[in-house]
């Protein structure tokens, strides 16, 4: 069934099925962390998650119908935002903690060992608190993640060819489906019409904060790489170079 013919319920069901499995760092963490060891654990985990993120994106109904160029552009623009939203979702029931994976959990204070990371941890914790206050539902979370992916490059690409224009139109229709799905998820919560509208506004406004933290995180990782604090390789290197 094409996504344009799916009900919002079916669409959400498909993106729930696309959710990546829980991922483990699978390293012996030697505490206290050093700047290098913490950065190495963070980047190792990110690299593993990135591979699963590509598979997740391909399962979003309609994503693989976009041009390959658009698929690459979208993923390279949003990857850190997607990782951060996932982190917030895992951490939402753990105030003051960042649950990078079931075997890699950090307190805010542990960020002290990496120069400049505490500020990013605080921004991540603040956005997570906001999601906690809003009592973010799983259906809403998966819609927001798909929105981040599909919206990530919308204002920077001007279609030139007929193929690019076709892909952009497909992208816009796909965004419509995701917005419909989010509206439907909110409508199930038994809120008044006005409360539903406000909730939609509050949830989507949080996306601008996530973009902001992601930009900070990207700058931080680039600095750590430049200073040789951490060796960045494989898919993560490809994604990071795309942003520097």
């Amino acid at each position: 069934v094409h996504h344009s013919a799916m009900s919002p319920e079916e669409f959400i069901s498909r993106i729930m099925e696309a959710e990546p499995p829980e991922i483990y760092l699978m390293e012996d963490l030697k505490k206290p962390f050093t700047e290098a060891s913490m950065m190495m654990s963070l980047t190792n985990l990110a690299d593993k998650e990135l591979v699963l993120m590509i598979s997740w994106a391909k399962k979003i109904p309609g994503f693989v119908e976009l041009s390959l160029t658009d698929q690459i552009h979208l993923l390279k623009c949003c990857w850190l935002e997607i990782l951060m939203l996932g982190l917030m979702w895992r951490s939402v029931d753990h105030p003051g903690k960042l649950i990078f994976s079931p075997d890699f959990k950090l307190n805010r204070e542990e960020g002290q060992c990496v120069e400049g990371i505490m500020e990013i941890f605080d921004m991540l914790l603040a956005a997570t608190s906001r999601f906690r206050e809003l009592k973010l539902q799983r259906e809403e979370y998966v819609c927001l993640k798909a929105m981040i992916l599909l919206n990530s490059n919308l204002c920077t690409s001007a279609p030139q060819t007929a193929e690019e224009l076709e892909s952009r139109n497909k992208l816009l229709r796909l965004l419509d489906s995701v917005i419909d799905a989010l509206v439907w998820a909110i409508s199930k919560m038994g809120l008044s019409t006005q409360q539903q509208t406000l909730r939609l506004g509050h949830l989507t406004m949080l996306l601008s904060h996530i973009r902001h933290v992601s930009n900070k995180g990207m700058d931080h990782l680039s600095t750590m790489k430049r200073k040789n604090v951490v060796l960045v390789y494989d898919l993560l290197l490809e994604m990071l170079d795309a942003n520097t």
């Binding site: 699963l52 598979s55 391909k58 390959l68 993923l75 494989d234 898919l235 490809e238 170079d241």
Partner: peptide, 24 residues
């Protein structure tokens, strides 16, 4: 450098059907 060359791994992962769990 073309987009495909600049993003070899990403391009491959988008195009192939190998289980990403194996690759991870």
């Amino acid at each position: 450098t073309s987009l495909k060359e600049k993003h070899k791994i990403l391009h491959q992962l988008l195009q192939n059907s190998t289980s990403p769990v194996d690759l991870a």
